[in-house]
Computed example of a mutant assay.
Amino acid sequence: MDQATRSTYQSRAPPRSSDSWFPASLSSNASNHHPSGECHLLIPHPITPHNWALWTKIRILLYNHDGEEHGTLWGMGDSCITICAPNPAGPNPVTLEGGGYNMWAYVEAAMFEYMAMTSSGSVVFHNWESGFFADQETLETGRLVLCAFGNNGGVKKSGRIWPVFTKDVFNLMTGVGKDVEGLIEGDSWIFDEEAPPDDMQKPILEIMATLAEAGFFDENGRGEEAWRGDIESYAPGYLEMEEEGGGMAEGYEHGAFRED
Rank of each mutant, 00 (worst) to 15 (best):
D2P: 05
T95Y: 09
E244K: 07
L239T: 10
L146D: 01
I204E: 01
M115Q: 12
L146Y: 00
N220G: 08
N102E: 12
S20F: 01
S36W: 08
L96G: 09
E224F: 03
F257V: 01
E225L: 13
S17F: 06
Y106L: 08
L172M: 13
T95L: 13
M241C: 10
D168I: 12
T141W: 00
A256R: 13
Y234C: 04
P15D: 03
P46M: 02
I184E: 01
P14C: 04
G182L: 12
N29Q: 06
I43K: 15
L139H: 08
E140N: 07
S28H: 11
S18K: 13
G246R: 02
A89F: 09
S233C: 15
M1T: 05
Y106A: 06
I161H: 00
V124F: 11
G67N: 08
A214W: 10
G229Y: 09
A24F: 02
V155A: 03
G251Q: 05
A256M: 12
W21F: 10
E181G: 15
N220M: 08
G247C: 00
R258K: 14
L96M: 11
V180M: 07
T5C: 09
G177P: 04
T210S: 05
N127D: 11
E181S: 15
G245N: 00
F133R: 00
W104L: 03
L172H: 07
S27R: 05
K178G: 08
F257W: 04
G245A: 00
G90E: 02
E185V: 05
E108Y: 05
L172Q: 15
S119A: 08
P236Q: 06
L183T: 04
Y63A: 04
E259F: 06
D2L: 06
R16S: 07
P46I: 03
F22I: 11
G90F: 01
